[in-house]
Amino acid sequence: MEQIAAVLGDGARWRIVELLAARPRSVGELAELTGLRQPQASKHLQTLAKAGLVTVFPLGQRRVYALEVGPLVAFEGRLRGLVETAEAHAGERDVLARYRDAISSETALAESDHWADGRTFSFERLLPATTEVVWRHWVEPALLASWWVPPSMSVSEALLEPRSGGRAVLEYRSADGRYRSEGTVREATPYGRLVFDLAVVGESFRASYDLTLKAVAEGTQLLLQLRIDDTTVAAAPSIAGIELGWNQVLDNLTHAIDKDSPT
């Protein structure tokens, strides 16, 4: 497939393939129609033949070339697969566009340190599981690491110790670097409430979280309230990503719980 893509990337060869799609043609006819000299046309046809795209028929003194459709059909299938994959993940591109716009907006506001102190965010989810199951996904490290991770990153450490004074740690790794947040659990009421804070190491940016879980007929009503303080100008891109990021990871949580819960 890579060879076919490389061969068709040349404009002259692409024009020859278009002409051969209509009917077989001789080297002289192809040279005349493309404006190439005959040796140039012959060289392009040899390249197409090596890629399996054309077949030559020696007819006395003439050499006539015909297009082979099979490789093009296979190439079309690969291209269609790429298009379908891109269309299926178009939402991720939209998220990047919204994040870019949010960074521009926040950067324009960030004129001095503490510019966003006191800002709050609120997120809700109805989860199809008991409060015990949802609680475990927050306080058991392996379960926490299974969902609290942005795309293209992996969790190297995730910890929310469910007790007052417990450690709160979240560390991501990606091809571009390491991102670590540390803090303290302030309150932990099993299956009901978890209060903790996390500060992004190296950015002087602290977030306070208040998680409440409420049992309802459909499962668990989750409410997460978040407040940011100690904000710096440099923290604008991170603050711009809070809403988008938390919506993504809470979707991850929903999928993780749905997968782990019995039908």
Score class of each variant (00 low, 15 high):
E132C: 00
S208M: 10
V7G: 02
D176W: 15
N247K: 09
R93S: 08
V185D: 03
L213W: 04
S208Q: 12
K50Q: 11
E203W: 12
H44G: 00
R78T: 11
E92C: 05
A74G: 12
R173F: 04
A240D: 04
R227C: 04
G52R: 09
D176N: 13
Q46H: 12
G165A: 10
T212W: 04
E132W: 03
L82P: 01
R63G: 02
H89T: 12
W115K: 03
T189Q: 08
R163S: 11
T55E: 10
G52N: 11
F57G: 02
A5D: 14
E84K: 05
R78H: 14
V200F: 10
M153D: 03
R98F: 04
L198R: 01
R25I: 00
L143A: 02
A116C: 06
R15S: 14
A6F: 06
G35R: 07
L127E: 03
I242P: 10
V83G: 06
A217E: 15
T34L: 07
L33H: 04
G241W: 10
E140F: 00
L19M: 13
G70L: 11
A188Y: 00
S42R: 14
L244I: 14
D210C: 07
R78M: 12
D197Q: 04
A74I: 15
P58V: 08
A6Y: 06
L33A: 13
T130I: 06
T184R: 09
L48Q: 07
T120R: 15
S261T: 15
T231F: 03
S208Y: 09
